[in-house]
């Protein structure tokens, strides 16, 4: 991962990775979990065996997707974008803004096989985002 990613100290990056791995262990069908800065740098990630996913590329795309969501929400008079959901035939992919983390703002991504309900993936992503927020708040 990028040494500058989010300017989080290594022990916090490790803590975030543990949280991602825990979310994957607790949620059936998850294949990928990612924490990225809002400007597209991967902070930590975890990938299930048998999957080859370039976390750095996905982090940049998550940033673009989130920025587009924000711009679109603003255009139609909605509030800030809290997340982006990408349902496909193979996977359900969810990107959520980690709430109340000011510096640096973070995006949490979770992908699970489409056999899992989108609701359960969303719930898992939200729980993971809150766990990361709580972990960072407790140590900073």
């Amino acid at each position: 991962m990028d040494a500058h990613a989010g300017e989080l100290p290594p022990e916090l990056v490790e803590q975030c990775r543990d949280t991602l791995e825990q979310a994957m262990a607790e949620t059936d069908g998850t294949v990928f979990a990612l924490l990225a800065t809002v400007d597209g740098l991967a902070v930590a990630s975890s990938t299930a065996p048998g999957w080859d996913i370039a976390a750095e590329r996905v982090a940049a795309m998550a940033s673009s997707g989130h920025a587009l969501g924000d711009t679109l929400a603003g255009e139609i008079g909605a509030d800030d974008c809290n997340g982006v959901i990408i349902p496909t035939d193979r996977l359900s992919v969810v990107f959520l803004a980690v709430p109340d983390v000011a510096a640096p703002p973070l995006i949490l991504g979770l992908a699970a096989t489409a056999q899992e309900s989108l609701g359960s993936v969303l719930f898992a992503a939200r729980s993971c985002a809150h766990a990361i927020r709580d972990g960072l708040t407790a140590t900073t």
């Binding site: 300017e7 809002v38 940033s63 673009s64 989130h66 920025a67 711009t71 703002p105």
Partner: peptide, 21 residues
């Protein structure tokens, strides 16, 4: 219309924000 986000790489550029899309 901008898709600006906070720039966390101030060592790369002193700009506070950067275009993401």
């Amino acid at each position: 219309l901008l898709t600006d986000v906070a720039n966390t790489r101030r060592d790369e550029s002193d700009k506070a924000t950067t275009t993401a899309a």
